[in-house]
Every structure is written in structure tokens, then in C-alpha cells.
Nucleic acid binder design. Sequence first.
RNA 1: GGCCCAGUGGCGAAGUUGGUUAUCGCGCCGCCCUGUCACGGCGGAGAUCAGGGGUUCGAGCCCCCUCUGGGUCGCCA
Length: 595
Amino acid sequence: MTQSRTHTCNELRLSDAGAQVKLSGWMENFREVGASLGFVVLRDFYGTTQIVAETEEMVKLFREITKESTISVEGTVRERSAKNANLPTGEIEIVPEKVEVLGRCRFRELPFEINHSREADETARLRYRYLDLRNPAVKANMVLRSKVIAALRQSMTDHGFLEITTPILTASSPEGARDYLVPSRKHPGKFYALPQAPQQFKQLLMTAGFDRYFQIAPCFRDEDARGDRSPGEFYQLDMEMAFATQEDVFAVLEDVLPPIFAEYGLYDRASASPFQRIPYLEAMERFGTDKPDLRIDLEVTDATEVLSGCGFEPFAGNTVKAVVISDFKESRKVIEKTLAEVEVVAGNKAYWFRVDENQEIVGGIAKFVTPTKEKVIEALSLKSGDLVVLSAGALSAVQKTAGVIIKTFGPVVPGHMDKEQYTFCWIVDFPMYEIGEESGELEFCHNPFSMPSGGMETLLKAERGEIDPLQIKADQYDLVCNGIELSSGAVRNHDPEIMVKAFEMVRLGEEDVKAKFPAMYHAFCYGAPPHAGIAPGVDRMVMLLAGEESIREIIPFPMNKNAQDVMMGAPGPVEDKQLKELNIAVTKTEEEVSG
RNA sequence: GGCCCAGUGGCGAAGUUGGUUAUCGCGCCGCCCUGUCACGGCGGAGAUCAGGGGUUCGAGCCCCCUCUGGGUCGCCA
């Protein structure tokens, strides 16, 4: 037989019994049952098939082959005398006639066991990622990722969007994250930058007359990693629409995402269109965060009036927020443990008391609350069985802590979280400006590309002192799913005059706009359409769908937390010759100098 | 950069108030086993207990420093 295989390892069934076949794959295991009986598990991308060795010679032959070598087996399909209902191919086995080793595994012991690689040391997994990926459970996430990306691409195309690629080598952008820079050989002292996002290109495409653009876009940001944030590079489903409003963008994603989440996700329920729209300030007030997990039914109640003067020292003169958790039946130990978690994550103390079956305030800070019991019960609408968790301090810190309380207690207390679903919401009406923490002056809150709500009129009112600049909203929105921020988007500011005015609010002007965004500013002077867009993170979506806690589980070749590829050795040293060509001074490390 | 957690044969873990030869499972090697499928049985090899310093009669365990990894805050228009 000259073919390398006639079937995959997940293909043969009882009906194939008697057929002459050739299979190729990795020798996963050899179970030796006697001097002349043994069973090989042959694995390929598709599944596994059992090979039976029933002569002394055959047993000896397989015994010599190291596990994880690739082999091909020619033989006859036969019905098993002992079937395995757990395997799709469990009714048959192959009686081999010819066995060939295709790629010998040179090691008797592997860095980890393939089928248990997820339990192994992560550095070892990343260093031997090609072995880690042999694990069907690891591989499954890559298959999922591929399917989700294909589905997104198909759906966007079906919605009339055109996929257009934009440059990877481009100019450094002055705002936002740290850029990855690439030196230029032909222009000494000058640098390309890898795009943090195709933001400006997609807006230029709108100006050029493309109506609906999208791209599975690689984005590069030199910022520190998180569990849900890969260092260095990630992918966005980047999209932009001409002559579009906020609602037009919402309508597209409300149509594209839920079916894909329901089909490919861990849970088969996903929010239907329209998603809840929650103004930013309301989200902060009700959920203590701008990325609420709507699967949790807990909300924040203000308790400043009834509790700031209760005599409990940390409350004195501070804002106090309460999260009331009804039907709380867990032990005090659970409260203390969960509270400790809250304090670690929020970096802020949290306090508690509960209402017992006799409507008495007990536990935690009860003795400070009891004197004004009736007032507190009324203000917080308390009833028997309620646990009240509190935070105190300055407004923003208190809100944040309350948000962490909701997120931490929600999954722990039975009955307050309907976990198995995807809940989407839009956070809208973000403030356009804020007072910078360092500067103490007015600054852009998010990005300067967004259209101020109400356009020029609003900015002029602020300029005339008729409204507080901090009250100005931007036509900007976040898409949140299960407490994870999937994306920011906005109706863009396509008007050069409004752009300049928006910059003047933060003490900048036309020259700054031109300097920072020369192409966009000039392009908009040639007739730009109003446009809006968004860019949901592909990696985060796949993470949600796979139910993974770490973003590295859904990236084929991830870097570690320190932005290193331990398999390829990146970043790595380069030849002096390369540096000279790039007009970069050759410097020696201390080690090289002293050594 | 701050804070928290972890590092013990190839892999995953245990290791008591500090006390003799560091324990268990997987894997590896050898022998046995004719229907296994997490095969089983018997035996064996394999460890500078991350590194350095200190306390002590004695350190895997206590203290200090360093390194590595993970989480988190900062950061991420």
C-alpha cells in the first residue's frame, strides 16, 4: 500500500470489519497483557483506534517502539471480542500485518504525560507546547477557536461586512498603551510601530467610502499580562460602519454574537436582542463596576445616611455602601473567608452583619447597628435571613469594593447566580472627560476619537460655562458579557472642527490634533461620513465559550506572564551585524563585558 | 514597580512542635500475566528538597537574601 493512510483513527466501525486498512498516528500506549497478547492505542487528530498484537513477534515489536512515536499500521479490521462502549471505534480493532515507525520518539520519558498535561507545570507545557497540544483536551480549545473565528467571519460577511487587512508595520500612536517598536534600516533613528489596534486605518477606510469593514485583527500592546489578558498580542473582531449610529452597531452585534455563543459555548443560553443598556453612572451605582456580571442578582444599596454616623469608626464621615444578600444560610466561616477574598481583590476592608429569624441584628458590626436597628432595616429593606456586607470610604473606592463584594459573594451563596448562561449588556453614556489623578486637570476619559454626545453644541455650552465639562457624555459604549469586558466602541468624531474643540477642552488645539493624528485629521477635511464601530476581543470570547480561566488555554502558542516565548526563545539576542544594519549601537551586557 | 501564593526524583503530590535511611501515586527499567482499554502482579533504578547565607548538637521544615513561575494592584486611548 503506497498511501500513508486509508482511514483516520476515528473512522472505522463494525461495518468495516474485514476491510484491509492502513492507519497512521502516534503510539499513545501499549498494554502488554501476556507474552503474546497486547493492545496498542493509536492516536491521531481525530481519535484513537486499538491495534491488537497477538503473536510473540508482534508484542516484541511494539515493545521496542517508544510511546509517542509516529507509526503506520497496515492490517485487517476485526470485530472485538471485548468491546468498549466509551470509544467511537470501540467495537473494532486492527490486526496488524505491517508496522512501520515513521518518526521515532527519542525519549523514554516525556516532560509530562500527554493526557495529563493540563496538570503539569505551566512553563514545561509552554516549552513543549507541541506535546501539550497533543492532549485532546488542550487541542479541543484550538479547534473551538478555529470554529468560532470561522463563524464570526461568516456572520460578518453575511451582514454585508467586507474583510480588509490593514498594515502590521505602521506608525507609533501617541495615546494609549505602550507600543512595540520596530527599527527601520533605511531610516536611521526612525521606527515603525506594531498597531495597538487598526483604529485609524478603519476610520480612514470609512472616509475612503467603504461602508462596512471588519477584520480578525492582530493587535499589539506592550503592557503587563493578566489571567484574561495575553501579553504582547491578541486578536479583535474589529468592525466599523459608515453612516451608522450607536444603535446600528448594537443591532449588528446583537445579531452576530448570541447565536455563536449559544452554539459554541459551554452554556446554550445567551441574551437575546436587545441587550440591556446601562448608563455608566448607573452601573457604578447599582453594581459597583462598569462590567457587571448580570448572572448575579445582587445590587448595591447606599447606606451612608443610616450608617455613617452609627459610631463605627471606619464609617464616620464616609460613604457607606451595602450589598444585601437574602436567604443567607452559610456559616460565619464562609462569611469570613469570602470577606478575606474581597479584601485582597479590592484592597479595601469590608464589614458585615446579618438579620436573624427574630429580626435582630447579629454578627460582625452588629453592636454598632443595633441602636438604630429600625431605621437601618427600613432604609435597606431588610428581612430575616439577610446578610449585609458593607464597605466604607471615598465614593470610588467604596463602589469598587461593593462591586467586588457582589462578584465574590454571588457565586458562593446559593440562589443568587444563574451561572449557566451568557448575559450581555451595553454600558453606555461614558463621561467624555475626567479630572486626571496626576495632573488634577481635565483629561480625556477614554479616547479622543469618540464623538461628544450632542456634538459641537455640547462643547460650546461647556465652553460658555453653561454646563460642567465633567457632565459631557461621549457616544461611547462597552460590551460586557458575564462580568468580562469584551469590547469598547464608539460613534467616532468625524468632524475636524469638533475634534479641535474637543481637544481645546483639555488645553490642546488644532496643531496637536494634526500632530497626533495627521492622516485622520486631513482625511476628515475631505468629507467624512459619520461612522461608528467596535472591536470585541476574540481571545476573551473564546475564553468565555471554552469556560477557561486563563487566556493561555485558548491561544495556540501563548507567551508566559513575562511576555516570553519559552519555546522559541523570544525575545532573544540578535547578531551585532543585524544591529549595525539597523543603526542601533551594539552594547554589551554587564555579563558579557566582565566575562 | 507594590502586594499575595508557590517551588520536594521525569510528572503530580505528602512530609507532624526541627530529630535516624525523605513518603505515596503516575511514568521509566526488569520479570510475570492470552481480551486489555486509567489493564493487573512482583521487583528495581531515579532527589544537591529552586539557589545562597544564617540560627541550631541537628533544617525539606525556622530566619534573611536571590532566582523562577502564577495571581493581583498599577498599567491596558
